[in-house]
């Protein structure tokens, strides 16, 4: 049986909990009659703001919880230890399955309560924004949540796509294969005119797999020399006859294989980069957001 993802964890437990909380918040906001336009300073504004701050602390705790997982896991013990460690947080429940605080459960809660945070914080603002610290905190929060949602998407979606792309191969294996194709092509090209040799040489020297951040993320190379070589070789097929044609076909086949391998390798690099990059925003911005949030709380009560 396929294991349930962080989205479906415990039959959408955290979705149900957070959706319930969000509904309550929306109902309270709609029926609240503060006597002024809604903003963070009404009674409901304070309540929503406090709840949002508590959610933030809960979400940040995930980062600590992740690091608390023992480095040398003994599966049965880990669970017991983890449960023991967080037993004081555990809620009593009637359902059959105990409310465990596995890392997966934490992550599932982290995702859903992250989404809920946006709603709580938005209602807290009363849709009042400006060029100030308070809106900066909001924007940082939205960036953190959006990057987190992107992370959730790639975590749930990309592993299967990566497996489909790589099959049994690994990236080092694929790069070795590409080197092999290069050597074969170099030998095979020697007998052909300079024009073809140059294509093969350029393909060998200038084809880029990985590289700078944007190259990794895009998974493409502009005017890729390998693709150019394949295209040009395809057009040159008519120029050869007899045994040379056979050799040419061999060269063309080699370059075709190389191109396919290059595309797969780049795609793999791209997926890996996408799996990793969001955390370079998510984690640092969450720290900046926490500081902005603390400053926000300090400033509004400093000038109460």
């Amino acid at each position: 049986m396929q294991r349930e993802s962080i989205i479906e964890y415990e039959r959408y437990r955290h979705f149900r909990l957070s959706a319930g909380a969000m509904s309550l918040a929306v109902v309270a906001y709609v029926f609240d009659k503060p006597g002024t336009e809604p903003y963070g300073g009404t009674v409901l504004g304070y309540v929503l703001g406090t709840l949002a701050a508590l959610i933030v602390l809960f979400l940040l705790f995930y980062g600590m919880r992740k690091r608390l997982t023992p480095r040398l896991p003994k599966p049965e013990n880990t669970e017991v230890q983890t449960r023991r460690r967080f037993a004081r947080f555990a809620l009593r429940r009637k359902a059959r399955r105990p409310l465990t605080f596995s890392l997966k459960g934490w992550l599932s809660a982290h995702v859903y309560w992250g989404v809920a945070l946006v709603l709580f914080a938005t209602l807290h603002t009363g849709f009042q924004f400006g060029w100030n610290l308070h809106s900066l905190s909001y924007v940082l929060m939205v960036l953190v949540v959006l990057s987190g949602l992107y992370g959730t998407y790639v975590y749930v979606h990309l592993p299967r796509v990566m497996t489909d792309n790589m099959g049994e191969d690994t990236l080092p294996g694929l790069l070795a294969k590409i080197d092999g194709y290069d050597k074969l092509a170099a030998t095979s090209a020697l007998q052909f005119p300079d024009e073809i040799c140059q294509l093969i040489e350029r393909s060998r020297n200038e084809t880029r797999i990985g590289g700078r951040l944007l190259e990794q993320l895009s998974g493409r190379q502009k005017n890729c020399p390998t693709q150019l070589a394949v295209r040009k070789l395809h057009d040159m097929g008519k120029e050869f006859h007899g045994a040379r044609l056979q050799s040419f076909h061999d060269l063309y086949a080699i370059m075709n294989h190389k191109e396919a391998a290059v595309v797969r390798a780049r795609r793999h690099v791209k997926y890996k980069a996408r799996l990793a990059i969001w955390l370079y925003l998510h984690a640092p911005l969450s720290i900046a957001f926490l500081l902005a949030l603390l400053t926000h709380v300090l400033s509004v009560f400093f000038y109460w």
Partner: peptide, 28 residues
């Protein structure tokens, strides 16, 4: 060969966290 992972790019989460936090703390 070129870097094939983000980790090889020597980007630092701590550096990003430090500078963004510094801006927030100093200016705001």
């Amino acid at each position: 060969r070129l870097p094939i992972s983000i980790a090889e790019l020597q980007l630092s989460k701590r550096r990003v966290a430090f500078w963004t936090s510094l801006v927030v703390v100093v200016i705001f």
